[in-house]
Amino acid sequence: MSQTKSLTIDLEREAHVWQLLNQQFGIPRLPGYRFLKSGRKRIRLISDSAFDLLSRLPYTGTTGLYVGEYSPNAFRLSMDGAQLLGPHATKQIVELNDDQVETWLQGESVNYEDVQRGYVIVVHNNTIIGCGSLSQGKLRSFVPKIRRPKPTD
């Protein structure tokens, strides 16, 4: 039972994660979703049915989906977290063009002038592709190495 307990976050912190998502991206608290912790900062997303099941399982491995990193003042969405929760976002959204997206998906920063600052949801051709950090005219990429498109040769 110990592992299950270590995954569960207290309701106060869960509410704080939703609050940060709302403040940063305008994502409202969504029914049917619960958060779990994974390590000190990492947050995972799980369906409420699976969450209810957790307390009845004596042991578990990887559970739910890694959606981002939590800090007291900000929440950085993972690539998949942005794709899953991003459609509910109303602010902090930036659109990349064809050239920029290729560079950005390779994990490199791209030049991007915008009034917005901080973590942003990155969109290309009306599709969410991840989350980046915008400051001083640069859009930083957090695309993990394993997820960068591989060259064909």
Binding site: Y33, L45, I46, S47, S49, A50, L53, L54, L57, Y59, T60, G61, T62, T63, G64, L65, Y66, D80, Q83, L84, I146, R147
Partner: peptide, 16 residues
């Protein structure tokens, strides 16, 4: 675990 993550699956608990 990698496939679950890439596919965006949130309703799965893993046991070994």
């Amino acid at each position: 675990g990698h496939n679950i993550q890439v596919c965006g699956v949130i309703n799965t608990i893993t046991l070994c």
